[in-house]
Simulated assay, not measured.
Amino acid sequence: MSEDLSLVPPHTRTIVELGSGDCRLLETLAEKDPQTVYIGIELDSEQCRQAKSRVNLQNVFVMQGSFEDIVPRLPDDSVDGFIAVLPDPAFIDEKKEDKWKPLYRAVYTKLKRPGAFRLVTEITDEILQPVSNEAFDRWSIWLVSAFRSVGFKVAGMTEGAPIEYSSRCLDQFRGDPERIRIATLDFVKE
């Protein structure tokens, strides 16, 4: 595993996870697909240290740093897929949309055609009450609209997270599905 993009060997496909934490998800995906290179970007140095000491796969690379610094360094039209699981609210909050849209525009630019971006995110009630269907639907419509405005086409949306996805927070959030409603959105660059 390395933080230098020039050390990533030639490969068939590239998948990048934004906020990879301890790289549990990338490790699972990489074990099933050794022909693809998986790059995890994580700001937290302790999470990166844990990932680097635990994950021992030749096709997983961990980069410590911010999305805003690392994603622009990737070549345009070079990434087959991006994954973001439960991004920090600073990167998905409706009230901060103008601040996070530039990151997702960069993600769009880095994707090959056709490329995919999978977003697994959550909505909660501000006072931690159950999230109504109306609030979930309103939020879902806003998310789709926000990512369409960046250039993405919506390929699919489901309630909940993919069963094969696992992380500390995701596993915890699944335990409270009424107050923490999760959606998985699949976007494509055509």
Score class of each variant (00 low, 15 high):
Thr28Ile: 15
Gln50Trp: 13
Leu43Pro: 09
Leu128Pro: 01
Pro9Ile: 00
Asp44Gln: 03
Ser149Trp: 08
Val16Gln: 00
Leu5Met: 14
Ile180Pro: 00
Pro75Phe: 01
Glu164Asp: 11
Tyr108Phe: 13
Gln50Tyr: 13
Leu29Tyr: 11
Val8Trp: 02
Ala51Lys: 02
Pro72Val: 11
Arg24Cys: 11
Leu25Glu: 12
Ile15Cys: 10
Ile83Cys: 06
Gly175Val: 00
Val150Leu: 08
Lys95Cys: 14
Gly175Thr: 14
Cys169Phe: 15
Ser140Arg: 15
Val79Leu: 01
Ser167Gln: 07
Lys99Trp: 04
Ser167Tyr: 03
Val144Met: 04
Arg179Leu: 00
Glu42Ile: 12
Glu159Cys: 00
Ser78Arg: 01
Thr124Met: 06
Phe117Val: 04
Gln64Gly: 14
Asp44Arg: 06
Val55Ile: 15
Ile39Ser: 02
Val188Ser: 13
Ile127Phe: 10
Ile70His: 09
Leu119Ala: 08
Ser166Gln: 14
Ile163Phe: 07
Ile92Ser: 15
Leu29Phe: 11
Asp171Arg: 02
Gln47Asp: 11
Phe61Thr: 01
Pro72Asp: 04
Val55Lys: 11
Leu185Arg: 07
Ile182Asp: 07
Ala90Arg: 11
Lys189Met: 11
Phe117Gly: 10
Lys96Arg: 14
Glu94Ile: 14
Glu159Lys: 09
Ala155Gly: 13
Thr124Pro: 08
Glu42Phe: 10
Ala183Cys: 10
Phe82Ile: 05
Ile127Ala: 08
Glu134Met: 08
Glu94Gln: 15
Glu3Gly: 13
Leu5Ala: 10
Arg168His: 08
Asp125Leu: 12
Glu159Gln: 00
Asp125Trp: 12
Ala161Asn: 00
Pro72Cys: 09
Ala135Asp: 10
Ile182Trp: 05
Pro130Trp: 06
Gln129Glu: 14
Lys112Asp: 01
Val144Ile: 09
Val16Phe: 04
Lys189Glu: 09
Leu5Thr: 07
Gly21Arg: 05
Tyr38Ala: 03
Gly81Gln: 09
Lys95Glu: 12
Pro114Trp: 09
Met63Tyr: 12
Val37Phe: 03
Phe173Gly: 02
Thr14Glu: 05
Thr158Pro: 02
Leu74Lys: 01
Asp33Ile: 04
Gln129Asn: 15
Asp176Phe: 12
Glu164Pro: 04
Glu122Ile: 07
Ala84Trp: 01
Leu119Val: 03
Asp93Ile: 02
Gly156Trp: 11
Asp4Leu: 05
Pro130Asn: 01
Glu42Asn: 03
Gly160Met: 06
Ile163Gln: 15
Thr121Asn: 03
Phe152Gly: 10
Val188Gly: 08
Pro87Gln: 08
Val150Cys: 11
Gln35Ile: 06
Val79Asp: 00
Glu126Ile: 15
Ala106Cys: 07
Val154Thr: 08
Ile41Thr: 02
Glu46Ala: 13
Ile39Met: 02
Glu190Ser: 03
Ala146Thr: 08
Glu190Ala: 05
Asp98Gln: 13
Ala161Arg: 00
Ala84Phe: 07
Met1Asn: 12
Val107Arg: 08
Asn133Ser: 13
Ser145Arg: 15
Val144Ser: 13
Arg113Gln: 06
Thr14Asn: 10
Phe61Lys: 07
Gly19Ile: 01
Asp80Val: 07
Glu126Lys: 15
Phe136Thr: 02
Val16Ala: 09
Ala106Ile: 11
Gly19Val: 06
Leu18Arg: 00
Ile39Trp: 05
Asp186His: 11
